[in-house]
């Protein structure tokens, strides 16, 4: 019998709802992202965005999937990691639906969901995953029953770095896509701090130096070009270290920044050098969305995991490697 899982995502500034079947078919995937008029994301504003738009997005996802609320067999929600107010709003919606529809509730780790939706799409069994987004920059691989973080940023995430740079250069949020467009027009490379420490990296020094280039009058396109080449080069290096260290032969690129074509080109080059297969998650599944939560809900439910409403408090600091992976 086919199961229908409603997945609800809301860890940061995006809210998403998606329906995925137990066969791994994505039937719908609706989302909306808060775009502040200026500055960064305020957790309280983001949670208000979720409570205002969430119910409508969930209704749309059920409708577009061609099912009714009574067809839903389980509700999965992003329990963490993320911004507390956003997580609490999302969890409240999920708990309410689970009680109202009298179906089981499953808690999902947001980072693990990003990896597993990539595995579903690529049919990869055991990849080294580069997970890049506004809040995360991690190189992850499965070992000993857990997804283990082999490397990560020691300060700011790559997406955050790109957004802050864009803001500095007078571009609107989200800055990543505009930085990518500008970088294509760049032709002069400026040396920026390249900071790789083992399999970890650091972006704050590079960001400061890039801001300085701007104050010295270097063109925006040259800054974007130099920042992309340097920051993606660092990411390529830690991915490469993880592949060499784990000897795995699949490389997966997932998360919102996976939409960047230059990053994709660089990482596919890394995979080729190590005779590994490469996959970049398609744009609709790259960012924060409900389908990945729904698919992970299915995987967990099939391995026997559910959570009681009274135990389902959110986990803002939930580490990728804190969860026993029962389905692998």
């Amino acid at each position: 019998m086919t199961l229908y899982c409603l997945g609800i995502e809301g860890t940061a500034h995006s809210f998403g709802a998606g329906i995925v079947t137990s066969e791994g078919k994505v039937l719908s995937n609706e989302w909306d992202m808060l775009k502040p008029a200026q500055g960064g994301i305020h957790p309280r504003e983001a949670s208000r965005h979720h409570s205002e738009l969430g119910p409508g997005l969930i209704k749309d996802s059920v409708q577009k999937a061609g099912i009714h609320f009574k067809d839903i067999n389980l509700v999965a929600f992003s329990r963490g990691p993320g911004l507390g107010p956003c997580l609490r709003t999302t969890a409240t919606i999920a708990r309410t639906l689970s009680l109202k529809l009298a179906v089981p509730l499953v808690d999902v780790n947001h980072c693990v969901a990003h990896i597993e939706i990539g595995c579903l799409e690529s049919r990869f069994n055991d990849p080294v995953t580069v997970y890049v987004s506004g809040g995360n920059t991690q190189v992850i691989a499965f070992a000993g029953g857990r997804f283990r973080t082999f490397g990560e940023t020691l300060d700011i995430a790559i997406g955050n770095m790109l957004d802050v740079l864009a803001r500095e250069l007078g571009m609107p949020f989200p800055g990543g896509p505009i930085v990518e467009r500008e970088a294509k027009k760049g032709s002069n490379f400026y040396d920026l701090p390249y900071s790789v420490k083992g399999m970890d990296l650091s972006y704050s020094g590079m960001l400061t130096a890039a801001k300085k280039l701007h104050s010295e009058g270097v063109s925006i396109s040259d800054i974007c070009y130099s920042v992309q080449e340097t920051s993606f080069g660092m990411l390529a290096e830690i991915a490469e270290r993880a592949i060499a260290h784990t000897k795995k032969n699949e490389l997966l690129l997932t998360g919102g920044v996976a939409r960047n074509n230059r990053l994709t080109e660089i990482l596919s080059g890394v995979a080729k050098r190590h005779e590994a297969t490469f996959h970049r998650v398609s744009p609709s599944l790259a960012g924060d969305q409900g389908a990945m939560i729904a698919w992970n809900g299915i995987l967990q439910y099939k391995s026997g995991r559910r959570i009681k409403v009274e135990d389902s408090h959110v986990l803002p600091k939930w580490r990728t490697d804190d969860q026993d992976i029962l389905w692998r």
Partner: peptide, 17 residues
């Protein structure tokens, strides 16, 4: 401190038992 952190990281990913 970073050097020691990297040792900790290497042990937890590779020698978890």
């Amino acid at each position: 401190g970073v050097d020691l952190h990297l040792i900790h990281r290497a042990l937890e990913t590779t020698h978890w038992e």
